[in-house]
Write a protein that binds this DNA or RNA. Structure first.
Lengths: 254, 254
DNA sequence: TCTGTAAAGGTACCCAGTGCCAAAATTCTC
DNA sequence: GAGAATTTTGGCACTGGGTACCTTTACAGA
């Protein structure tokens, strides 16, 4: 409430504005709080608000810009042969930002849920994360048609999985650790999309054993002495899921 | 340019407004066209504009509301055992709406690309499609944790794939048929996510880890005398998507 | 022709966001 | 420490989207 303590560092105006704004949003709601209300409580001029936040919505997401930069930096630095894993890890950066201040995150979540303007704003933020991830994948997959397609679909999957886990945590009130839910969600995506560059010897050994098995009825013939190829036979009209199922059945039996 | 022909049906005001608005957007750009400009050209009162379009952005996407209703109706009607296929088909409804008026769609695409406000508005529209699809999948998968997760991730994948194909067509200027690109994109998603009767996550995980090497040249041999069967040969480490892609390439041509 | 209802127009207003310039605070320089 | 230079902040004034409220017009059926 009071300021001007003397020799102490005064908190930066950006912070003051964000706190004042958030207080008011919780008291009266977002839409019934005007920018004039905010600057009045913060004790600064109206013009200053828009110097620090390009729009009224921005004050609700004060740290996404920094987080996005962090993600970009992270992706520029990683150089493994596992792009899908990399973008999953990049998504976890966002999660950590939320987890760093559970109370704020949960209140913001509730606020965002019931204010359409904030929801669409959040969409544009999420979109930027998604495009950052897609850009990285595109760089790894190549820019040819399917590379771009795969990059965008995987990025969308990762974002959706991350958000699902995150929302679970937010809905629970921010209790406990959000990592577990997000890890599980990302694992699902990873398992579906990931193709590691280096097959692990252990898995290979596992596969060797499995591929020795005889073919199930007319579907697939697998194996050979050194397990170099698999042969699949199917009727021409066979639906794709059936093909996949059969290969799974023959290869992955355990 | 002229109106009031006499006994003829006068075009509905909504249409008049949309056309006047779009003309002006193409002439001066979206942001430098005011609502007053629009109503002036349309020859109606300013208040009437907001009766037909809740916001200036809405006039750019005049048919999405109807399309969304159509999608909802479609999903409520389908009752097959293939939810992923159903949402893919639902996505195609949107595609058809775009394809129904290529010129308009392409111009709108170019407009949307360079006006941030329209981009975020479009995001909110896309989000509604996505949630509609996710809702349908949730109903089929069950509301338990993983059902919801899978529903949201698959919906996001489908939307991303659809939009990738659609954008390809839009960038090309709307020439030819967008169906092919979108079909291909949706097939990718379908093949990855579609689960026959009994999904076995454990097996899939194994499979994903095991089938990882790129396929060597000449991976597939297709056909036979009467086209009754296909024979697929691939290296042991071939990733599943690659298998699917090659079978498609050999079997599915239009 | 009268009347009731729905569509359209009009006016005044709120508020987010911007441009411009003046005032203050801070830093630099001597 | 005074004063200049620079950066930060404040104070208008204005544009333009969006809304509330009310009047006017068009159209329906009797």
């Amino acid at each position: 409430m009071s300021e001007a303590r003397g020799p102490e560092k005064k908190t930066p105006m950006r912070e003051v504005l964000a706190q004042a704004a958030f207080q008011l949003f919780l008291e009266r709601g977002f839409e019934r709080t005007t920018v004039d209300d905010i600057v009045a409580r913060a004790g600064v001029g109206r013009r200053s608000f828009f110097r620090y936040f390009p729009s009224k919505e921005d004050v609700v997401f004060p740290d996404h810009e920094r987080c996005l930069a962090e993600m970009t930096e992270f992706l520029a630095a990683v150089d493994d042969g596992d792009p899908v894993g990399a973008v999953c890890d990049a998504a976890r950066i966002v999660l950590r930002m939320y987890a760093a201040d559970p109370e704020f995150s949960v209140q913001r979540y509730r606020l965002t849920r019931e204010v359409p303007g904030l929801r669409t704003y959040e969409l544009s933020v999420v979109r930027r994360y998604e495009q950052t991830l897609a850009g990285h994948l595109r760089g790894r997959f190549g820019a040819d048609g399917d590379g771009e397609l795969r990059a965008e679909v995987i990025a969308a999957s990762v974002v959706a999985a991350h958000n699902n886990g995150l929302r679970l945590w937010l809905r629970s009130g921010g209790a406990g650790d959000p990592e577990a839910a997000v890890d599980h969600a990302l694992d699902l995506v990873r398992d579906v999309w990931e193709r590691p560059a280096e097959p692990s010897p252990a898995l290979e050994k596992q596969l060797d054993g499995q591929l020795e098995k005889p073919v199930p009825a007319g579907g697939i013939t697998a194996g050979s002495g050194d397990n170099e190829v698999i042969v699949m036979v199917a009727a021409k009209g066979t639906p794709m899921w059936r093909v996949v199922q059969q290969i799974e059945a023959a290869v992955g039996e355990s």
